[in-house]
Amino acid sequence: MHVMEGCLPGPWWQIWFAISIPVIAYGIYKLNKLVDERRDILPLLAVAGAFIFVLSALKLPSVTGSCSHPTGTGLAAILFGPAVTAVLGTIVLLYQALFLAHGGLTTLGANAFSMGIVGPVVAYVIYKAGMKMNLNFYVVVFLAATFGDWATYVVTSIELALAFPSAVGGSLTSFKAFATIFAVTQVPLAIIEGAVTALIFKYIIQVKEDVLVGLNVMTADTIRKIRGSAA
């Protein structure tokens, strides 16, 4: 769900940069602290970022047949938390703009806000809340990834609607219009990404659960419980 280069006029692309940059700066601060604490985290973050980029270069099976790809933000938010994901996401967005022509440089601020900040924060909050309520782990991952994607899509619609208010009814009317058009692809897409993310976690828990323990995503006890309930 990228906003293309040049789509945001006048003050809007600067405004989104102004909103995103402090959050990304906070993410960098957190990242530096993490790297000081554990030196092996930088290569691991780098491969995770490369993984997200490659994931987003793959095409998802899509109902409508339009160009659609996973964002991977839900996965990253659950693994690394929203602050570090904001930094990772911004770098991935920059590479997408330069290598794949997804998104753009002036719209990088707006894209970073919708995909690197809001989406991961929503996914993370849902994940934490769901785990607190003792829901089934895979259901929680599915919900987190799906709602994270939907949040991204709603924010993108808001960004476009604010920049192009409708003549009758202002930004609210144009928001409805943008949201309706994008909903055709984004609503089913987010559900597919949720399912794929849940399946990815299933494999990780089966094959390489020490990743999750090492990142403090969950304790060894929880993993034993999840494996027990699946068997």
């Binding site: 290569p43 780098a46 491969v47 995770a48 490369a50 099976p61 794929v196 399946l199 990815i200 094959v207």
Partner: peptide, 25 residues
């Protein structure tokens, strides 16, 4: 099948890349 395959592809890729990262460190 496509959903299943893409999930399998992504998770294998993730696990492989993670191991690569550990070796890189």
């Amino acid at each position: 099948r496509s959903v299943y395959s893409i999930a399998m592809l992504a998770s294998t890729l993730f696990i492989r890349s993670w191991e690569q990262g550990e070796k890189l460190y």
